[in-house]
Design a protein around this nucleic acid. Structure first.
Length: 598
RNA sequence: CGGGGCGUAGCGCAGUUGGUAGCGCGUCUGCUUUGGGAGCAGAAGGUCGCGGGUUCAAAUCCCGCCGCCCCGACCA
């Protein structure tokens, strides 16, 4: 195609992608679109499609176009560097795995429909890997057999498939995606914990280097695994699926599933229990309004059915919501559904007017949130239609059930550590790290011989990062109304060269020369050689989001100048001397890559 | 899995009472333009999501299915 590629300057070779040619926009595959598909709603989804970064193939399944591939390649490169810095060794494990491997770990039975299973031509049960603990243990248990080989860490960048119930928001939640997954093996728990900390620091460097402006690590729900430590790295973004709470000084960070508040509840002197008529008032809002009190003076009853079909009677103060994850963890049940009226009546409770007083505890399990048990004189159901009880006091009127923290924290509730009001944010989970322990190494027999020649079970950690999701998250955090504003570290190109009035010989000549000189200086340059009108060219440049932009045009050229504009600088631009442009671009690129000049 | 919405050209959309499909953007050709998504002239591009039914006639009415999006549930 006669792209005029030249060998980059040796000292900058490090920063270039292998085989990364410069590109003429007239030849680049991937149209920019004026309108986004109607279903694209979040910023990253809109710009990923409009900018020609990727295209949908099926629900939650995308092809990456050259622009998107260049960005993910740079993210992957940064990840490789940081994984190598913590002594990781890159491997590649298969996407298609035999089910028998997952039978060994037991996960073929415990994982639900998210795991895509199929049979090969011989009828052998196969599956698509959604994570690779089994595969990596399969490798390690034969390759690593001595304490002398420990600790070790293997990582890969590989396609994962999860048959997600509901993909959404472009690349943020998909079914097929590239993940960096890493697995470490240790002889001792202490070694795992020290290594875990190193990976935590590597992750902080990764997310900083790829240009996330706000990324926090929070301790996360360890679910029924119990006792294991894990952290989620959350990119703060409005469209995030997870809710996180942070104290103003950052000392406390937790996600909705495990967050607690430092709320103190006060006990007033108990008043006599009294029945009041509340005809037709079944919800907290109705009852509170009807009786002229605030919701915090009421008690709410919420009914669930657990996996075994047992009814759960949850009590919480009227102004709080039950946190289903906390309740599920407390009950050690996998599944929790809202109960229907029939199921509620079956234990002798009147829906809408429920009271713990008349319940047979043998038929259902009663859990009381602290907000309910530690408040006084609450309005609760009278367990008969059209009536409530005033001045209910736990401890006096009822003593059964179990008291626990099953409430959802609200924005502004006091931090349990600092007492300051908690800030509530939305986040995208871009990575997680997990002290797995011996779950897989025990079940799959991954052992080593220690100094005494005794067989021991290896202790394991695992560490994931979603690549496409990271790209989308950076886009969520760094964009304006026109498109993304890429940081130099992952920008698809470093300089966007626009030629206006490209049909004029002097423009063409100057632009072609500048294009060649930028390449020769080792700079990744995207050359808009289409000769489109300025507005058209600029709108495309904004969608591509390259940090540095040079414009060759007749007016400035007549003065011996090249116009220079930053993507993050609004519409401001300055004129640079033609002679010094390449050197200046080189300096800026190097400076913004945050590495010392060679 | 529950609730809601949508399937007509690459993208965004219109299509009335049933009469044999159109607009804008994009694409191609020519000319004119050239600093924030230009103008004129011409052209290409459609199993109207799929299957069945009603009818002389279906994008339009009826039945079934599929796909896609949003909210919720679920999520090693």
């Amino acid at each position: 195609m006669g792209l005029g590629w030249r060998r980059p300057a040796a000292e900058l070779h490090y920063f270039l992608l292998s085989g990364a040619q410069p590109m003429r926009l007239s030849q680049m595959v991937g149209q920019r679109l004026k309108d986004a598909p109607r279903d694209a709603q979040t910023a990253s989804h809109i710009f990923l499609i409009r900018g020609g970064y990727c295209r949908p193939v099926s629900t939650g399944i995308y092809s990456l176009l050259p622009l998107g591939k260049r960005i993910t390649a740079k993210i992957e490169r940064i990840i490789r560097e940081e994984m190598d810095r913590v002594d990781g060794q890159e491997v590649l494990m298969p996407v298609v795995l035999p089910q028998e491997l997952w039978d060994e770990s037991g996960r073929s039975h415990t994982v639900g429909q998210e795991l895509l299973r199929f049979k090969d031509r011989n009828g052998k049960a196969m599956l698509l890997g959604m994570t690779h603990e089994e595969a990596v243990v399969h490798l390690t248990r034969t390759e690593v057999t001595s304490y002398k080989q420990l600790p070790c860490m293997l990582y890969q960048l590989q396609t994962k498939y999860r048959d997600e119930a509901r993909p959404r928001a472009g690349l943020i939640r998909v079914r097929e995606f590239t993940m960096k997954d890493a697995y470490s093996f240790h002889a001792t728990q202490d070694c795992l914990e020290r290594y875990y900390q190193r990976v935590h620091e590597a992750y902080e460097r990764i997310f900083s280097r790829v240009g996330l402006t706000q990324c926090v690590s929070i301790q996360s729900d360890t679910g029924m695994m119990g006792g294991k430590v894990s952290h989620e790295f959350m990119a703060v973004a409005e469209c995030g699926e997870d809710t996180i709470y942070i104290s103003p000084d950052g000392r406390y960070k937790a996600n909705k599933e495990i967050a607690t508040s430092g709320l103190a509840f006060t006990k007033d002197a108990p008043l006599p229990l009294e029945e009041v008529a509340t005809p037709g008032k079944t919800s907290i809002e109705e009852v509170a309004a009807f009786l002229g009190v605030a919701p915090e003076h009421t008690g709410k009853a919420v009914f669930f059915v657990d996996a075994a079909g047992k009814l759960i009677f949850a009590c919480i103060r009227g102004d709080f919501e039950v946190n289903e994850t906390k309740l599920r963890n407390l009950l050690k049940t996998k599944e929790l559904k809202y109960a229907n009226d029939e199921q509620i009546r079956a234990v002798g409770v009147e829906p809408g007017y429920a009271s713990v007083l008349a319940v047979d505890e043998k038929k259902c399990r009663i859990v009381l949130d602290r907000s309910f048990a530690e408040s006084s004189n609450l309005i609760v159901g009278a367990n008969k239609p059209d009536a409530h009880l005033k001045n209910f006091n736990y401890g006096r009127d009822f003593t059964g059930g179990e008291v626990a923290d099953i409430g959802t924290v609200r924005a502004g509730d006091p931090c349990p550590v600092t007492g300051q009001p908690l800030q509530m944010l939305r986040g995208i989970e871009v990575g997680n790290i997990f002290q797995l322990g011996t779950t897989y190494t025990t079940s799959m027999g991954c052992n080593f011989l220690d100094q005494n020649g005794k067989s021991q079970v290896m202790i394991m950690g695992c560490y994931g990062i979603g690549i496409g999701r990271t790209m989308a998250s950076v886009m969520e955090q760094r964009h304006d109304q026109y498109g993304p504003i890429w940081p130099m570290s992952i920008a698809p190109y470093q300089v966007h060269l626009v030629a206006l009035n490209f049909n004029q010989p002097e423009v063409k000549e100057a632009a072609e020369k500048l294009y060649a000189d930028l390449q020769a200086a080792g700079i990744e340059v995207l050359f808009d050689d289409r000769g489109e009108k300025a507005g058209f060219a600029f709108a495309d440049a904004d969608l591509i989001g390259v940090p540095l932009r040079l414009i060759v045009a007749p007016k400035s050229l007549a003065l011996g100048k090249i116009e220079f504009k930053r993507r993050d600088g609004g519409r401001n631009s300055e004129l640079l001397d033609q002679a010094g442009v390449v050197a200046q671009m080189r300096e800026l690129v190097i400076a913004e890559l945050q590495v010392p000049a060679p």
